[in-house]
Design a protein around this nucleic acid. Sequence first.
DNA 1: TTGCTGACCGACG
DNA 2: CCGTCGGCCAGCA
Length: 114
Amino acid sequence: MNPQADNLSFFQQVYAVARLIPYGRVTSYGAIARYLGTGGSARMVGWAMNSSHSTTGDIPAHRVVNRNGLLTGKHHFDGPLVMQELLESEGIKVIDDQIINFNKHFWDPVKEIL
DNA sequence: TTGCTGACCGACG
DNA sequence: CCGTCGGCCAGCA
């Protein structure tokens, strides 16, 4: 089979969507995974973010949180407080690693991107 | 090469 | 309500 059957690899697709996240908005790993059609591969989305530091281009990984709006991956940044600071810098309130009004800031690629 | 782990999610009991 | 399990894919020992 052609490894290039699809346009881009799974990781590349994740990076593409992550870059499309608008300022002051957040999304979840599962939402991205669902948009890619993988659904259950939500873990790979997080793994892709882990490799995002290796990729060229700005990947707003701080705008990607888990389904609960919890900053689960904050420890993977330069510091455990970097993610929260970045979100607050964009007008998103974060208390105890939990995004306030998460639903209001939530950005679903499936609904936003057609 | 095989096996385990991982920034998750949903279902089941 | 809470604990547990399976699924998905890629990287690493």
